[in-house]
Design a protein around this nucleic acid. Structure first.
Lengths: 166, 166
DNA sequence: GTTAGTGCAAACCTTTTGCAGCTCT
DNA sequence: AGAGCTGCAAAAGGTTTGCACTAAC
């Protein structure tokens, strides 16, 4: 969904297109996916230093409620914040490497089958679906094996930074 | 996984079975699934009023890292806390009603297929997988339709409680 | 001119951390 | 005895709220 079609969608619902929202919509649209609120805020602040963090949260909430963006957790890689991506037509799973943080997207019939089965099995009306898979990407598997054996060799494992951002 | 086999698993790793942990393991095991830290804490406090919230968090973290429990978000129904369930042999999706909060579990081949496809497609080594689906259960679908039309009739929609616990 | 939206500060919820003292083995 | 665990207090991370002011329509 483009920034333009987002704007249209909002206008129809009588939601005002403020300068701040235009900046945010623009960034969400053109930046790659999987932004968290803080990153979006930092990027937005470069365009408008007065733009407040709270406005970012309020805008994301509005877009989420309006179904224009999806909210992800990405297995809480790097903290408990949420990530956002503009809603796509096609449902997809997020596959995240727990070592390097790379996120892959997987489209494919198992997801559609799952959806249909759940709808018919429970008579359930699906609004949101989220599949997140954590593990090690092909590149990190070998590196990780080495790390683990090194860690075992030491008396004490070296602690891993968990919440802090770079 | 029973509280007994959990205890065995911990003992093997040289982890001490303190009174507090026995209480928590017991509660996690026998109570239904999908407990959050605060509920577990409240239940534990009835058995030992001195038991601290922090101990609950530390225990859950340890069990999660040891692969004895799985952590869920349940689409952030009722807040941003996490929910825990004892790990099952069979992968399953969680289907949560956004109106009444009921959680159903879905087992079925699409999940296994998805897993296999992702492993082979990306050469990915899966450690954790989570599928959460939000929507309306068969019972709530009709009730919800009524609520929505009522809300539309009013000048202002009645706010929905979000974070607070009862 | 209305009404919705913004910024600011302060609150909030959930979770983690530092440290002194206690307890399991 | 000694490592590991607990409780307490305090902090942190992420997000929301109240309110006076501003800006979009």
């Amino acid at each position: 969904m483009s920034a333009d079609s987002m704007q249209g969608s909002l206008k129809q619902r009588g939601i005002r297109l403020t300068r701040q929202r235009q900046i945010l919509l623009d960034l969400i649209d053109k930046s790659g996916k999987h932004l968290d609120a803080e990153s979006l805020f930092l990027m937005a602040q470069e365009k408008d230093p007065k733009l407040n963090r709270v406005t970012v949260y309020r805008t994301l909430k509005m877009l989420k409620q309006g179904g224009l963006v999806d909210e992800l957790d990405l297995m809480h890689y790097g903290g408990d914040q949420h990530y956002y991506e503009t809603r796509m037509k096609q449902e997809h799973a997020h596959v995240i490497c727990l070592r390097c943080g790379k996120v892959e997207e997987f489209f494919g019939d198992p997801l559609q089958k799952l959806r249909r089965q759940i709808e018919s099995h429970f008579g359930f009306q699906i609004v949101l679906a989220r599949t997140e898979i954590g593990g090690y990407c092909s590149h990190c598997q070998t590196l990780r094996a080495r790390e683990v054996s090194e860690a075992a060799a030491l008396t004490e494992a070296h602690p891993v930074t968990k919440r802090k951002k770079a």
